[in-house]
């Protein structure tokens, strides 16, 4: 993910705030459709697709991430066909439970919202994202926390991984250690994390840290960013109000209702 954040593209050059606002508007618009909507959601595909194309991030990467995250939505969504069994006639005379339609709608929304959010993050990079967050008014302590968490996530996770590997090598195929051994392993990991926090603090103090984390900022609002936000929000509003897909379909099939 971080590699993509360091890339350069038209999508990356957009202000992280502009992308944040557009993406949130996108999610709200998508989620405000009634539960059985399918075709009305179709035009919204254009937003993640265009952003993805502009960013130059490989689509397979986003697709994989979406699939990894899918099980929860599928699990809960699967109850819809179970509990909502009103027959619905599909074109071609096929009859299915209404729940299947809303299930499909849930999956569609899921894919749309998750992919939009992922493209937004991947095309921004953590530090630009945080700078953007701070400028829309997120609490400083939270923004700094996000930066530090992100910075030490992989460092500490590597330590955890090494400890787990060392444990697995000596555990003869058992599924996990006993609670006592677990307490010791995780406790050691915690102590190491605390030691690291201590050392990082010393390093920060050594360079004049006084409680404020300062960073070079270079984000400046441009007209392009504003236009990006305005155009997309207008599009979302139109697509939310009128079913564009259906209109297109009606036009193609000769206006047959």
């Amino acid at each position: 993910m971080d590699e993509f954040g360091a890339m350069d593209s038209p999508a990356h050059r957009l202000d992280a705030r502009a992308k944040a606002v557009a993406t949130i508007a996108f999610i709200v618009a998508v989620m405000s459709f009634p539960p059985y909507e399918l075709s009305g959601l179709a035009p919204f595909v254009i937003y993640p697709v265009v952003l993805l194309a502009l960013s130059g991030i490989p689509p397979a990467f986003i697709l994989r991430k979406v699939l990894i995250a899918a099980p929860f939505a599928i699990c809960i969504g699967l109850f819809n066909p179970l509990f909502d069994r009103h027959p619905v006639v599909l074109p071609g005379g096929l009859v299915v439970a209404g729940g299947w339609i809303s299930f499909a709608s849930i999956l569609f929304r899921f894919a749309l919202t998750v992919s939009a959010a992922l493209v937004w993050v991947a095309s921004s990079g953590m530090h630009r994202l945080c700078a953007g967050l701070e400028r829309i008014g997120a609490p400083r302590a939270f923004v700094v926390q996000l930066l530090f968490l992100h910075r030490y996530l992989f460092v500490v996770a590597d330590e955890g991984l090494r400890m787990r590997r060392a444990m697995d090598l000596r555990s003869a195929g058992a599924r996990g250690p006993s609670l006592r051994v677990y307490g010791s392993i995780t406790g050691h990991l915690l102590l190491r994390a605390l030691d690291r926090a201590h050392r990082v603090y010393a390093a920060m103090r050594a360079r004049g840290f006084d409680g404020r984390v300062r960073a070079l900022r270079e984000t400046e609002s441009r007209i392009g960013d504003a236009a990006f936000v305005v155009c997309w929000i207008a599009f979302f509003a139109i697509a939310r109000k009128w079913n564009l897909a259906e209109a297109l379909g009606a036009w193609i099939t000769g206006g047959a209702r």
């Binding site: 530090h127 530090f148 910075r151 460092v155 390093a203 006084d210 984390v213 960073a215 070079l216």
Partner: peptide, 23 residues
């Protein structure tokens, strides 16, 4: 410091090197 991961805590290299001067 001994472990550079303790010393480099900012999101980018440039931010990190500028941390001291800014402070």
């Amino acid at each position: 410091f001994q472990d550079p991961d303790d010393q480099l805590f900012m999101p980018t290299v440039l931010d990190d090197v500028a941390f001291g001067p800014l402070n």
